[in-house]
């Protein structure tokens, strides 16, 4: 089957490893080949956490610069930083609620202008879905469900070969029981948000 490559970038603590695990479990349910890799040595120390998910007939678990089909960004400046993973055909989905790094607070850097940031991403890629996923996570009942909101919008684009139904099943089996309902709600809100953006 055709290979689809997804890069997820986030800040440590935003839950992108769980998001990729849910995708992996959903692929397992549908019997779709999947390989993933992650760099999480410093995940709890506020650094950038990147994971790669490769669906289909490929042996590699990592994705080279310029070769992502979809870039899913949990934090807008990190989405922009990962633009080197994209090409003109790449679809970008990004949260627009910023989480400025500490370097900004101590005056060692300037956080990019959010409008300029969106403009740049839109110019250089095929399509961008951008919305305040943090607000939707809160609406779902827990700000930690940001990852599920973004999964919802990812699945809505239809680029990944996993169905909403299987992802929801995977959410039920591989996220904490106490949060399943919130997570499903968050997934649905993200799905709707992406549909509206289209």
């Amino acid at each position: 089957m055709e290979t689809k490559r997804l890069i997820i970038v986030a800040v440590g603590g935003q839950g992108n490893l769980l998001a990729s695990k849910v995708l992996g479990e959903a692929a397992l349910l549908a019997d779709i080949p999947v390989r993933m890799s992650e760099i999480h040595g410093m995940a709890q120390r506020g650094g950038v956490v990147e994971s790669a998910v490769v669906f289909g007939d490929a042996e590699s678990t990592i994705i080279s610069d310029g070769e992502a089909d979809v870039l899913l960004g949990f934090e807008p400046s990190e989405t922009l930083r990962a633009l080197n993973k994209c090409n003109a055909e790449t679809v970008v989905i990004t949260n627009t609620a910023p989480l400025p790094p500490f370097t900004v607070a101590i005056g060692k850097g300037t956080y990019p202008d959010l409008n300029e940031l969106q403009k740049l991403i839109r110019q250089k890629t095929a399509r961008m879905v951008a919305f305040d996923a943090q607000a939707l996570a809160k609406q779902a009942g827990n700000f930690m469900s940001l990852n599920m909101v973004l999964l919802g919008s990812l699945i809505q684009t239809g680029i990944m070969p996993v169905s909403a139904e299987n992802v929801k099943k995977a959410i039920r089996t591989s996220t904490k029981k106490a949060f399943v309902d919130i997570n499903i709600k968050a997934f649905e809100l993200g799905f709707e948000a992406a549909a509206k953006a289209a």
């Binding site: 650094g47 950038v48 922009l80």
Partner: peptide
């Protein structure tokens, strides 16, 4: 793309 603020682990 403007220079982005670093996000080192801390």
């Amino acid at each position: 793309v403007p220079e982005l603020p670093q996000r080192p682990p801390t």
